[in-house]
Design a protein around this nucleic acid. Structure first.
Length: 274
DNA sequence: CAACCGCCCTGGGAGC
DNA sequence: TGCTCCCAGGGCGGTT
């Protein structure tokens, strides 16, 4: 269930176990992810030392050796776990990275919407999948001025706008809904009609919501290491997502549901205005 | 071009 | 208990 906070949590969870470790083997049990896992990867990774992990949008970047970097994407249902060699291979464990310290990094992905690709280290940010990405939501590049400029004259609903990776990365369906609630903005509001005053609230809401989720993700680190259980750290804090039919926690009116670009969109018609 | 819609997959839950 | 249908956190690629 990876949104940006979980990718960040995954990165922090696995980093101490993989960084500086030599790759003993990269085994691909099923290469049929969103794109085929490149056949030459096993050879490229063999014997390489894993470098310092980083994250760009929902991609996890894992340098291997001096020349290449692995690009992991968890899709809708992917996860990366550190396990011991005695841990049985589960159904949908498609890839494993065996390290010199004896631990295994396993990629598990029932729906196979995820990906494992690679690039040269100095060209990773120019990779076709990364080059058109907008600013990181927690960085200075994501700010009111840029959003006002990009949203100018757009009729597209504000919710669709903030979920577009070209505008800002890492805002998935849950956090789009939650951030709009916090900012008091109706999800159908045309992006070009969101005032500067409301953009200030929305930018702040996106930053604080994601940051808070990352904080909580930290508490699930041991799950990644131990390899047991899915993290469910944000569920109890949701104000609108998945709460359609329930009472708004702020005003007590009923949370509504509408479909927007094929995705469930929950909102409070009283707290969120055009 | 902007905006929408289908689709890549499996699994889980609801309803019958 | 078992079917069938619907839905799910992403995001690319094709169509209008």
């Amino acid at each position: 269930m990876p949104e940006l906070p979980e990718v960040e949590t995954t990165k922090r969870g696995i980093a101490p176990h993989v960084e500086g470790q030599q790759v003993r083997a990269l085994r691909v049990h099923n290469p049929n992810l969103r794109w085929p896992v490149p056949a030459e990867l096993a050879q490229l990774a063999h014997g390489a030392v894993v470098g310092v992990l980083s994250r760009r949008a929902k991609y996890l970047l894992m340098p291997i050796g001096e020349e290449f970097v692995l690009l992991w994407h968890l899709g809708m249902s992917g996860s990366l776990r550190i396990v011991t060699p005695s841990t049985e291979l589960r159904k949908h464990d498609h890839i494993e990275l065996e390290l010199a310290n004896g631990t295994l990094l396993r990629y598990h992905d029932p729906r196979r919407f995820g990906a494992l690709l690679y690039a040269k280290q100095d060209e990773a940010h120019k990779h076709v999948l990364l080059e058109h990405l907008g600013p990181e939501p927690l960085g200075d590049g994501f700010n009111v001025d840029l959003m006002l400029a990009r949203a100018a004259n757009k009729k597209q609903p504000i919710k669709t706008f903030i979920m577009d990776n070209a505008n800002v990365v890492g805002v998935g369906n849950i956090y789009a809904c939650e951030s709009l609630f916090k900012a008091g903005i109706h999800p159908s509001t045309p992006a070009g009609r969101v005032s500067e005053k409301r953009w200030i609230k929305l930018v702040e809401a996106i930053k604080t919501t994601l940051a808070a989720a990352i904080e909580q993700g930290g508490t699930t680190l041991r799950d990644f290491v131990g390899g047991d259980g899915e993290p469910g750290y944000f569920a109890q804090q949701l104000f609108v997502y998945g709460r359609n039919g329930d009472a708004c926690r702020t005003c007590n009116s009923e949370i509504k549901l509408l479909k927007m670009s094929g995705r469930a969109t929950c909102y409070c018609a009283k707290c969120q205005r055009y």
